Amino acid sequence: MKILAPILLLLLVFDSCKKPESFEYRDLRNFKVDSLGFEQSAISMDLVYFNPNNFGVDLKNIDCDVYVEHNYLGKYKLDTTMHIAKKSEFVVPSKMDVNMKNLFKNTLTSIFTKELLLEVKGTTRVGKAGIYITVPFSYSGRHEFSMF
């Protein structure tokens, strides 16, 4: 098996003629506050992505930090394996504990602006045929947000 794993990895690399494309963020659905507290709150949502590649992969162990306007908002973890089909949309169910002190720092900013900077930095494990690699990722983008 130790000899077979590198051979399968090489076949996978040679099979893909081009570099795999990153998943495309599409939508946020079903946002809700699960619990509300002064120090920490819990939120959940479904994040919708699209796999533009001509091959499917397995995704597991997402671990990332979320920032709003450069202020730490909370840590997101996903410890489940999901199969993602080629050329298809997929939903990542997400739950996150939010540091309320840092959220309050963004309240004044969000009242006076229509867009907020959202940053996500972390790692995930992706693979195929039982061979997984850890892939670092970073996302930064402005998103419309309205208090009213």
Rank of each mutant, 00 (worst) to 15 (best):
L4W: 10
A5F: 08
A5L: 06
A5V: 10
A5R: 06
P6C: 10
I7E: 09
L8C: 10
L8I: 09
L9T: 11
L9P: 00
V13C: 10
F14Q: 04
F14S: 08
D15H: 15
S16K: 14
K18C: 10
K19F: 15
P20N: 11
E21F: 08
F23E: 06
F23D: 04
E24T: 03
E24W: 02
D27I: 01
D27F: 04
F31T: 03
K32H: 07
D34V: 13
L36I: 12
L36Q: 15
Q40C: 04
A42Q: 12
S44W: 12
M45W: 10
M45I: 05
D46K: 03
D46E: 07
Y49A: 06
F50H: 11
N51G: 09
N54F: 09
N54G: 08
N54Q: 08
F55E: 08
G56A: 01
D58Y: 08
D58F: 06
L59E: 03
L59Y: 05
L59D: 03
L59H: 04
K60P: 00
K60I: 01
I62V: 11
I62K: 00
D63F: 10
V68L: 07
E69H: 06
E69M: 07
N71P: 00
L73E: 00
G74A: 05
G74W: 01
K75D: 05
Y76C: 06
Y76S: 11
Y76W: 11
L78A: 08
D79G: 08
D79N: 14
T80G: 06
T81W: 08
M82P: 00
M82L: 14
I84F: 04
K86C: 08
S88M: 01
F90V: 05
F90R: 06
V91T: 11
V92K: 08
S94A: 12
S94K: 01
M96I: 08
D97W: 04
V98H: 08
N99L: 05
M100Q: 10
K101L: 04
L103K: 06
F104M: 11
F104W: 12
K105W: 12
K105F: 15
T107I: 12
T107K: 11
T109N: 12
S110I: 10
S110K: 02
K114Y: 15
E115P: 00
L116N: 12
L118H: 04
E119R: 09
E119W: 07
E119A: 10
G122L: 01
T123E: 09
